[in-house]
């Protein structure tokens, strides 16, 4: 097993034609953690990942694994495992041959290749389909094989480039949990790229929120959600209401908005639309002064309110009020 090492991006800048993809990007990925690069498309997260893999060269700055500068190392000499969005399995090779391909390239003895390949397939619960060809697998199965393939060579860092975005919702959750379990179990340092904030919050040890090639905030999922350091982060991670109550500008999460159907001195409004999500209920409320607010309330039997109901609106947790 290779020694766990941290990976560093040091002031990496990358420009494509006139567009700046990354600007003075610095980040430490701690060994063994799962770090997510989160941001809208074009924010530079994929570029950062591709620079780590060696597919792009930074204009300036360095990439290091441990003490080794890998900035100018060609991709096939780096110890990186990568899982792509979709269709990256070699179509002419069976599942087991795909998984052992990296070991073959490293000239591991063929007996051991097969053994390690089968072990990886067991870990992703694909041991029954070793001799299938990729086109005979479902999307979720393909991504599990791709994961096994990337991990089979025991890479320094596992790079995941939106590996779930081509899957449908239920499979997505399954594969996501699998990635989490597997990387924790193997202690693999992992960089996960996604534009889906829910995915990021669910899977990560730490999240790096990016925008326009710049790091907006790095922190644990709860830190990012509860203490967004910029309005961009607050907006991008989770849902947000921006309202003005009693002369104060407020930024509040929908779950902090409390609706009450008995009248008090607080702000009044009317529910204009509701949607039921099983464990919770979403309300669209129009305040009397015309502002729109979204509220989320935990669902308990008999707790639902209908559209048209008059309500008063209160803001729950005071410490999240901040003017922006």
């Amino acid at each position: 097993m290779s020694h766990p090492k941290d990976m560093y991006f040091e002031s990496v800048t990358k420009t494509f034609d006139a567009t700046v993809a990354l600007e003075n990007f610095s980040l430490t990925v701690r060994s063994g953690e799962l770090l997510t690069l989160l941001g809208p498309s074009g924010c530079g997260k994929t570029t950062a990942l591709r620079i780590a893999a060696g597919f792009e060269r930074p204009d300036t700055g360095r990439v290091l694994v441990g003490a080794v500068d890998i900035t100018n190392q060609p991709p096939h000499l780096r110890q990186m495992g990568m899982v792509f969005q979709s269709y990256s399995l070699f179509p002419h090779l069976s599942v087991i041959d795909n998984v052992t391909f990296g070991l073959r390239m490293k000239r591991v003895a063929s007996q051991e290749q097969r053994m390690r390949g089968l072990r990886m397939l067991e870990l992703v619960r694909m041991e029954g389909l070793t001799d299938r060809l990729p086109h005979q697998l479902s999307g979720g199965q393909q991504q599990r094989v791709a994961l096994a393939r990337a991990l089979a060579t025991q890479p320094d860092v596992l790079l995941l480039d939106e590996p779930l975005s081509a899957l449908d919702a239920k499979v997505r959750a399954e594969v996501r949990d699998e990635i989490r379990t597997l990387t924790t179990r193997l202690g693999t340092t992992t960089v996960f790229v996604t534009h889906d904030q829910e995915e990021a919050l669910g899977i990560s040890d730490r999240i790096c929120v990016m925008n326009k090639g710049i790091v907006e905030q790095v922190g644990s999922p709860t830190e990012i959600y509860d203490h967004p350091r910029s309005s961009f982060v607050a907006d991008f991670v989770g849902e947000l209401n921006r309202i003005r109550l009693g002369g104060v500008d407020l930024v509040v999460r929908p779950e902090q908005v409390i609706l009450d159907n008995c009248h008090t001195a607080d702000t009044g409004g009317e529910i204009v639309a509701t949607s039921f999500h099983g464990s919770f209920m979403r309300y669209q409320v129009r305040l009397d002064d015309g502002q729109a607010v979204t509220a989320i309330a935990k669902h308990t039997p008999g707790s639902g309110m209908r559209a048209g109901t008059r309500v008063t609106v209160k803001i729950g947790d005071e410490k999240h009020e901040r003017s922006v």
């Binding site: 060696g54 060609p74 991709p75 096939h76 792509f84 269709y87 990256s88 990337a150 060579t153 790079l159």
Partner: peptide, 15 residues
């Protein structure tokens, strides 16, 4: 020929 095949191969040690 998908670019990802070339990239995946490179990751796995094939120049």
């Amino acid at each position: 020929l998908r670019p990802t095949w070339r990239e995946a191969a490179a990751n796995l040690g094939a120049g």
